[in-house]
Design a protein around this nucleic acid. Structure first.
Length: 676
RNA sequence: GGCGGCGUAGCUCAGUUGGUUAGAGCAGCGGAAUCAUAAUCCGCGUGUCCGGGGUUCGAAUCCCUGCGCCGCUACCA
């Protein structure tokens, strides 16, 4: 096999917050690929860096009362600690706020100017009057300038399909503060990407650089029409690099210098290892593989190749794009405790669990991944502890401080079959189809366990005459175990080193799975991995639960009111016709035939009770409601429904589905009290 | 609105270029075993492959259409 030269990158984490389990999907995915390539003997390096520039950094630094430099230094340290905790092994971890990065930004910039792709013009733009931030078109809402339909976004109208500029919108408001925005103007630099349209058509649609869904997305979204100029500068003040020869009045936009950080980080590695940067970025033999999330697709598949092409640098061989992490089928949520920080996770659980779980779910496609906590526990316990580690656990003990057989015994072709599976497992890793790789590996573990089961070493042990047979059976079991561990090594590096120690033989290359070990001394078996207990996961979730902080005082968005405008004026007489009472839920059950309904029994105190059907099944579990105080409309005319008679209505807000919020009185209220 | 994607067993998902009775893991039920971290092994799955059309000798797989869900829509890092 010829040795490939491979540069691997993961997206640069923004230095504005800590790493969480969503980020980790990407770093684990990339780290597995990097370790795999190294294990295969290729010349691979994995570089990354903190992405440190932009207004958001300035804002955060001010909030902490420190300089931007101090802020990003602390954040970089925290990020690297988290990554190390998850056994993510970078060959270099840099920063976009580095001298190397400034240098390469200058070079790319000069190349763009030499190619006459840079222009300069005044941009009229909205700013939010409360936060002062500049507002993208999607953050403006108002009436369509053509058909006057209300409540339209700042770029085009849903009703008549007309497209326009945000500044043309009638009665614009900022969706950030709900207030009318302020118009400002500033000079910006632009890159004429359209001039590279032909190149981008070609590059994105052929050569297998992108997943097909990504290529289609680009074709449908951007490449189907003229590419707009890319705005790459921000006026001072801005935390970033000033654009040369602009009198410190203009800075590169953070998304200009961020990807160049890949080059700068490679440079730092080269300087430490006495290598030339051009061997990695100006060498047609070098493969460049970027791993990133779907949210930053077009930066890496349009602007970035355009920059590289113009600067005469290597184009990415492949951009691997992954989806987002959901937990329990929904977005990660701070209030539900599913927005778990890397640091919090590590306080409760072994990183190997998450590495394996993600690997077992990751495929080559751009799909969201569901982290189902129940499945997480059973999968890790069953696959890793029950199947894989158990192999060593049930056989190593019989040979502790003894040696493996001198020649490899007849195992019915098991080891050979495992060796032959090596290439297809490798192909799955290569193709980022880790879930297929894990399935193949677990099939090997299944047959190995079956082998032990059939040969019953625990019975051999009791028979003095069959000690050599016992040695043979354990030799087979331990070799099958080691073969599996080699295949798992990119995912579970710690397990690989524990196995190396147990069998007194290091694991350094993939091909070692082709040859069984003989005669080596077996160490004393120690637990290699603990089972996950549900209470550990529970504790992690509990620790992650935080009240959503109010970002800046009270800046509730206008969406709810816009969706359901205020009703007509009513009189106090109208109001008192509705008799609302405090009630206690004393029974609650789902209506099996209904999608949305719960049947509630409400007590208004004494023996006054109401049977009420409420459309809140998607948002509340019946058992969570029993005992709660709610507000009900008690004089609503009873209504016959398919499932019974509903004698009132429980008050709730929200749009329906899971977005339902049942009203509760403050502590001290008593069932039966009227709401005035 | 436009664009991209998805919709397969209770759950999470495999199903290569259309080809025999549609699969795996987990959960569930029954049994065996007791070396092992309540680990392991054996047995048990008729699921309108979202609905409706079409192409074909043959479609979960290709085409059209309808429904549902998710995402994206360039000065959000």
């Amino acid at each position: 096999m010829t040795q490939r030269r491979i540069l691997i990158t993961a997206a640069l984490p923004y230095a504005n917050g800590p790493i969480h389990i969503g980020h980790l999907l990407e770093y684990i995915q990339t780290d597995i690929w990097s370790r795999f390539q190294k294990l295969r003997g290729h010349n691979a390096i994995f570089v990354c860096a903190d992405d440190t520039h932009g207004t958001a950094i300035t804002k955060s630094a001010r909030a902490k009362d420190c300089t931007e430099e101090e802020f990003i230094a602390a954040m970089s340290e925290a990020h690297q600690r988290d990554f190390a905790g998850f056994q993510i092994e970078f060959d270099n971890y840099g920063s976009t706020h580095s001298p190397e990065n400034r240098e390469y930004c200058g070079q790319v910039w000069q190349a763009l100017k030499d190619a006459d792709l840079v222009s300069q013009r005044v941009v009229e733009q909205f700013y939010d009057v409360v936060t002062g931030e500049s507002l993208p078109d999607r953050f403006i809402k108002g009436k369509c300038p053509k058909c006057e339909a209300p409540d339209q976004y700042g770029d085009n109208c849903d009703k008549c399909g007309h497209t326009y500029r945000a500044t043309d919108v009638i009665d614009p408001i900022s969706t950030v503060s709900g207030k009318p925005p302020k118009l400002g103007s500033a000079e910006h630099f632009f890159v004429n990407v359209e001039r590279l349209h032909g190149f981008l058509d070609e590059w994105t649609q052929s050569g297998n650089h992108l997943q097909t869904e990504v290529a289609n997305y680009l074709k449908g979204h951007f490449l189907g029409e003229e590419l707009r100029d890319w705005d790459v500068s921000r006026p001072a003040p801005y935390f970033g690099f000033e654009i040369p020869a602009t009198n410190n009045e203009h800075f590169w936009y953070v998304w200009f210098d961020a990807p160049i950080g890949y080059i700068a980080s490679t440079r730092q590695w080269c300087d430490r290892h006495g290598e030339e940067i051009d061997a990695w970025w100006k060498n047609p033999e070098t493969e460049i593989h970027h791993f990133l999330g779907k949210d930053i697709t077009y930066f890496h598949t349009l602007f970035w190749p355009a920059m590289l092409k113009t600067a005469g640098l290597n184009l990415p061989t492949k951009v691997h794009i992954h989806g987002f992490v959901n937990v329990g089928g929904e977005k990660m949520s701070k209030s539900k405790g599913t927005f778990v920080m890397a640091e919090t996770y590590l306080r409760h659980l072994d990183p190997a669990y998450l590495r394996y779980y993600y690997a077992s779910k990751l495929g080559p496609r751009l799909e969201d991944l569901d982290l189902n906590l129940g499945e997480f526990i059973t999968k890790v316990n069953s696959d890793l502890v029950g199947k894989v580690v158990n192999l060593a656990s049930r056989s190593a003990k019989f040979l502790a401080d003894d040696t493996l057989s001198v020649s490899y015994p007849d195992d019915g072709g098991l080891f050979q079959a495992g060796a032959e599976a090596g290439e297809s497992i490798a192909a799955a890793y290569e193709n980022c189809d880790y879930n297929a790789a894990m399935r193949k590996i677990m099939a090997l573990a299944d047959s190995a366990n079956k082998y032990v089961e059939d040969r019953e070493p625990w019975k051999l042990r009791k028979d003095e005459a069959r000690q050599e047979e016992l040695r043979d059976v354990c030799t087979v079991a331990l070799n099958l175990f080691r073969q599996i561990v080699i295949y798992l090594a990119p995912v579970l590096p710690k397990l690989a080193s524990q196995t190396a120690e147990l069998l007194n033989t290091p694991i350094t290359t993939w091909s070692e799975a082709q040859t069984p070990l003989m005669s080596v001394r077996v160490g004393r078996f120690q637990h290699m991995m603990k089972r996950i207990e549900e209470k550990q996961v529970h504790a992690m979730i509990e620790e992650s639960k935080i009240e959503e902080p109010a970002e800046s005082e009270f800046n509730d968005g206008p969406e709810a009111l816009e969706k359901e405008p205020l009703a007509e004026e009513c009189t106090i007489d109208d109001f008192v016709k509705v008799d609302m009472r405090v009630a206690r839920v004393i029974e609650a059950e789902a209506v099996p035939e209904a999608d949305k309904l719960l049947r509630l029994k409400l007590s208004l105190g004494g023996d006054v009770q109401r049977n009420v059907f409420a459309g809140i099944k998607a948002a509340y579990k019946p058992e969570d409601l029993v005992g709660r105080l709610v507000i009900c409309c008690a004089n609503l005319k009873p209504r016959k429904m398919r499932f019974g008679v509903s004698e009132g209505m429980v008050l709730a807000s929200g749009g329906g589905g899971k977005e339902v919020f049942v009203l509760s009185p403050d502590d001290g209220a008593v069932p039966g009290q009227r709401v005035h």
